[in-house]
């Protein structure tokens, strides 16, 4: 309960002020970074372009990014690949996670294998996956998708499995008293209570997948993608290459952030507070 406030409040104005206030700190600090960067690169013999130069040199790239082989198309290309591998990893990872979570035999059996495989760095899979898909129509494409899949699946399996094992006794007791059937237990208790864990796994998975795809595309440039884009600019080393690389790196970071937040947001929709 609150006693009526004395000063009149305009909700829109208040909201706007709030947003502006929250922006002050990031804007100030980012500007400082840009300023230092500009100062460091302002000498004539600096090979690195300053922020102003980067923007002027890449305006064309930004606006023409949707043309074929443009930067945005390459980014989209990478995203599609990640999407395919990731969805596969999510579906299979959750299924395996639930299976080994409820079954002690499977859990004990597969645990050592999973523990070993999950620590393998993504790029170590690249030669294997390339060989594996050599005979397929699009070997580089498929190898990339597989790499995403194999990278993202481990955290999803492990977290799902932990979630299933960690179902609080409070909930299983309810299921016991109500004598819920196996199916009812699965859908009414097991899945909802595991969801937060699954999404933790999914979030870690998407981060790893995005890390892996850029590196993979740099190494096998045949299928394009943002990694290949960066690599091509690096090998050609034209006048504006460094600026383009900087733009691409920044975009990769931004997309990574968006992906992470997107999965997080998806999770918050599903998971009850």
């Amino acid at each position: 309960m609150a006693t009526a406030s004395a000063r009149p409040a305009n909700p829109i104005v208040e909201k706007a002020t709030e947003i502006l206030q929250s922006l002050i700190a990031p804007v100030v600090c980012s500007s400082a970074v840009l300023l230092v960067w500009q100062l460091l690169c302002s000498s004539a013999d600096s090979k690195m372009p300053g922020p102003i130069k980067v923007i002027t040199q890449t305006i064309g790239t930004i606006t023409g990014g949707f043309a074929e082989n443009g930067i945005w198309m390459q980014l989209l290309n990478s995203l599609t690949r990640v999407g395919m591998g990731y969805v596969g990893a999510a579906v299979l990872g959750i299924a395996i996670g639930v299976a080994i979570g409820v079954n002690k035999f499977l859990r004990d059996g597969f645990d050592p294998l999973i523990q070993i495989l999950r620590t393998v760095p993504p790029l170590a899979w690249l030669p294997l996956s390339t060989i594996l898909f050599l005979q397929t129509p699009k070997p580089a494409e498929n190898a990339g998708i597989f790499l995403i899949f194999i990278t993202a699946i481990w955290p999803i399996i492990i977290n799902t499995c932990v979630g299933v094992q960690q179902i609080p006794k409070d909930y299983t007791n309810v299921a016991k008293v109500l004598r819920l059937s196996g199916k009812d237990f699965f859908f009414s208790i097991l899945i909802p209570s595991t969801v937060p864990y699954i999404f933790t796994g999914l979030r870690i998975g998407v981060g790893l997948a995005w890390l892996a795809i850029v590196a993979a595309e740099m190494l096998s440039t045949g299928a394009g993608g943002i990694g290949a884009y960066i690599w091509n600019e690096y090998t050609s080393m034209l006048d504006d290459s460094i600026s383009k690389i900087i733009l691409a790196v920044f975009s990769v970071g931004l997309v990574g952030l968006v992906l992470d937040r997107f999965v997080g947001w998806l999770g918050s929709l599903v998971v009850a507070e």
Partner: peptide, 15 residues
Amino acid sequence: PGPDRMMVFQNYSLL
């Protein structure tokens, strides 16, 4: 356990 002996738990056990 069965629903003829419904339990109210200390920590509520709500889903």
